[in-house]
């Protein structure tokens, strides 16, 4: 469960990216975060994986106040959360397989367990036959699927995605959506910031709209609500 109570995020340059956000996201939910550019969506997401701390207010992940977590314990918090970005953040010199294995190695999973888990994750995202390929040999959609495999390989309770389809054509975007939906069906909470009107309007999930740092709309089965 993710909770935010009266959360403000003010950057050192004085910009108020979030202004008094109150939100609760239950375990197993699928949530779209929408809003114009610069509204504060990415800031909202960064607070969830403790990339940024709230300036004031409280952010709770499974009841843990992220602001109070000691620096050395932050890694353990992050293991509960898989993060996916618009630009994939794959390591260019490593194959799809190695990119996913890298995440397991980083959290010191025993070597024997790595291969089966990597293969399972890549199979789930439909890339069993492209494991040896470098990111440069994969399409954008495939690269994003590798990054999703990396995000889920540690079995986190949450997947947080910041415009994961932002660089993809509609067909690939839909593939990624179906994939995230499937991951959600398996019990993982998914929070996804997006500009993709068609997807939001078709999937009919919970929609949180942010404008100028304030939650202006929060509805189950909502619509995108903007004309981009």
């Amino acid at each position: 469960m993710i909770e935010m109570h009266d959360v403000w995020k003010v950057y050192p340059n004085g910009i108020e990216a979030l202004r008094g956000v109150n939100i609760t996201i239950d375990t197993g939910e699928f949530v779209y975060v929408v809003g114009p550019s610069g509204a504060g969506k990415s800031s909202f997401i960064k607070l969830m994986y403790r990339e940024e701390k709230p300036t004031s207010g409280v952010v709770l992940i499974n009841g843990v106040n992220v602001k109070r977590v000691r620096d050395w314990k932050i890694p353990h918090l992050r293991r509960k959360i898989g993060v996916v970005f618009q630009d994939y953040k794959l390591l260019p010199h490593m194959s799809a397989y190695d990119n996913v294995a890298f995440a397991l190695e980083a959290v010191e999973v025993p070597t024997k367990q790595i291969q089966p888990r990597v293969e399972e994750a890549l199979e789930l995202v439909g890339l069993s036959d492209r494991m040896k390929a470098l990111p440069s040999q994969l399409s954008g959609g495939e690269q994003q699927r590798v990054s999703i495999a990396r995000a889920i390989v540690n079995n986190p309770g949450f997947i947080i995605a910041d415009e994961p389809t932002g660089n993809l054509d509609p067909e690939n975007s839909w593939d990624i959506m179906y994939l995230l939906e499937e991951i959600n069906m398996r019990g993982t909470t998914v929070v996804m910031a997006t500009h993709n009107k068609e997807i939001v309007n078709t999937m009919r999930q919970r929609v949180i709209a942010i404008e100028q740092g304030i939650v202006v709309r929060d509805e189950i089965g909502g619509e995108y609500g903007y004309e981009d």
Partner: peptide
């Protein structure tokens, strides 16, 4: 980039 990914997936300091 590797360090960024390591942090992201929760590698200890």
């Amino acid at each position: 980039r590797e360090i960024e990914v390591q942090r992201l997936v929760g590698a200890s300091n």
